[in-house]
Nucleic acid binder design. Structure first.
Lengths: 122, 122
DNA sequence: CTGTATCCTCTTTGATACTG
DNA sequence: CAGTATCAAAGAGGATACAG
C-alpha cells in the first residue's frame, strides 16, 4: 500500500467509489470498447478493426480488465480457428445509461471546448 | 451506421468528440476538482487540503487545463498574501449533470465491481 | 483467429526546493 | 498564499515476434 512522505499509510482500504471506478473505465479505451459492444456481440479482430488505432496488446489488456470488473463477458467457442465473442454483462448494460449521458454531453459541448481551447495548448 | 468502401462498419470518425473530451476530464483529478467546486468557490490550498493526496503540481496543472478548456474560472484578488479563487464556469456547471449521473452509478455499483474483482488483481 | 511476451518510448505524477 | 522548476519513478501504450 502507498505511503506518504511521512511514511504514513494512505487510507484506501475502501477507496472513494468514484475514483475506484473511474480509474478503471477512465482510461483511453474502456469507454470505446463498451460503446462498441452496446448493440452487438463482437469478436476480437472485429473490435480491433472497429476501434482502429488500438494495439492488440491494449485491446487484450483492456478487455481482460473489463471482464474482470464484470462489465463484459468472454465466450470461447471450441472451433478451429478459435472464435471468441465479447458481450456486455449486466454491469456493462447498466453502465450504458451514465455512459451515454456523458457521451451526449461531450457531443453537445465539444465545439464550445474547442473554442475555449484555441488560445493555448496544454 | 456508416460503412466504408469495403462495407466494413465504421463508428469512429476523427476527431471523435468523446475521446477529445474524455482524454481531458478522464484523468485522475479533474472530476474530483469539479466535484469539489460543485457547491463552493475554493482557494488553491483549500482544494489541496480537501482532495488530500494530490500534489501541488498536479493541482496546479489540472486547474490550468480545466480553466483553459472553459470548465472553471480563476479569480485573483489584489491582496497580500495573494488570494485566488476557483469556481465553476458555465461549461463546468452544465457538466455537473452527466458527471453526477456517473458518480451516482459508481456509488451504486462499486460494491458489485469489488465483488467481481476479488478473483484477480489486474 | 486470438491472443501473449518482450522491449521500448512517452506521458503522467509525485517529491522537493524555490519564487513572488 | 499560490504557485513553478527540476528531477525521478511508475505506468500507459505501441511494435513486433511468437504461441496455441
Amino acid at each position: 500500500m502507498k505511503k506518504n512522505a511521512k511514511n504514513e499509510l494512505i487510507k484506501y482500504d475502501h477507496p472513494c467509489p468514484i475514483r475506484d471506478v473511474l480509474d478503471r473505465i477512465g482510461d483511453q479505451w474502456s469507454l470505446l470498447i463498451l460503446k462498441s459492444l452496446e448493440h452487438d456481440v463482437m469478436r476480437f479482430n472485429t473490435l480491433h478493426k472497429e476501434i482502429g488505432d488500438i494495439s492488440r496488446q491494449m485491446l487484450s489488456r483492456t478487455l481482460k480488465r473489463l471482464e474482470n470488473d464484470g462489465y463484459i463477458t468472454r465466450t470461447v467457442y471450441a472451433q478451429v480457428p478459435p472464435r471468441v465473442e465479447y458481450a456486455l454483462a449486466e454491469l456493462g448494460l447498466s453502465f450504458l445509461k451514465p455512459m451515454n449521458t456523458l457521451i451526449q454531453w461531450a457531443d453537445e459541448n465539444h465545439e464550445a471546448i474547442c473554442r475555449a481551447r484555441k488560445t493555448q495548448n496544454l
